[in-house]
Design a protein around this nucleic acid. Structure first.
Lengths: 161, 161
DNA sequence: AAATATAAGTCAACATGGCTGACATAACTG
DNA sequence: CAGTTATGTCAGCCATGTTGACTTATATTT
């Protein structure tokens, strides 16, 4: 059971540094998650974000509104479907997202180095296998794609066939 | 940066199943953490738990009191220092802790299997390296010990030399 | 013995970020 | 046109984190 505890401590410290930075900006962990996913997958829709974060529309709306109001996130009408709000980061948003991510990148690359060269793929496989089975294909696609706006939508359509 | 996202999804689903079970008992994630650490390290003091969880005494008190009142956790006076409350699980507490842990054990062992035989130690090393450097020795001791009441105390004393 | 330090508990107030339920608006779809 | 979908919003609740001030019991130091 040591892995369970390691995972707890690892995650605790993984989010610890960004948390303190966020506090200076008046944001919290929830803002970080939104910022991160919009950063990595610009053009993402609100519904995609809801799926990823596993939270309610109302919870997301609260933080998303703040990020938009504070000029970190832009919403633009979907090209095909004008109901959609495709999400992007502004320059200001990019700066913060990158700053937060820097801490995490550093920690991860140090940890990967200490896990050894073949350890990297083992870690990757382990983490993916920890994800709920039904979400694994989506997570796989998500992390492989640099930009993944419509891919997500296509998958949604498939599932309802 | 894919690892950051994998870690997010892995952790999200790692705590997902126990969360639903806890809800039936009227408990939350905070209770789970207390239950887990007291389970793995019976005889732990309140101060140790505070150190591990990185939360305030008042936050801990709220959930700990509920667990004691509901008969899942026992507090007994320290043998040497009667100010201490050494924490233990009751039979009822053991049952729930084990039930919650079962989901996580299953998920972890499946994921480790898919990471391969040498993958296991790589994962372990990776997670340990993700922990804040100053906490790594303590975490190492904690996860290696089956029971770790006074070890923690000894370390505290050392540090103030 | 008196002073101080430590372990734990408590009260009050507040912030964050989840939740439910109800409802509104605009735009797409059949 | 009718129904569905994507998004937003209002209102209130709950869990769990925070700070600050204070108490009690016990241990340690002077």
């Amino acid at each position: 059971m040591a892995i369970a505890e390691l995972l707890f401590f690892a995650y605790r410290d993984f989010i610890g540094e960004p948390d303190s930075v966020l506090q200076e900006y008046g944001f919290g962990r929830a803002h970080h998650r939104v910022l991160h996913f919009v950063w990595r997958h610009p053009g993402m829709r609100v519904a995609d974000l809801l799926d990823i974060l596993n939270i309610t529309k109302q919870s997301l709306a609260r933080v998303l509104k703040q990020l938009v109001d504070d000029g970190l996130v832009l919403q633009e009408e979907g090209a095909n479907d004008r109901r959609e709000r495709r999400l992007h980061l502004t320059e200001k948003g990019l700066v913060l997202a990158d700053k937060l991510s820097a801490f995490q990148r550093k920690r991860i690359s140090r940890a990967l180095a200490e896990a050894g060269p073949e350890g990297c793929s083992a870690v990757r496989q382990f983490l993916l296998s920890m994800v709920a089975e039904e979400d694994q294909p989506r997570v796989r696609e998500l992390i492989e794609a640099k930009v993944a706006p419509d891919m997500w939508r296509a998958r949604e359509v498939e599932r309802h066939d």
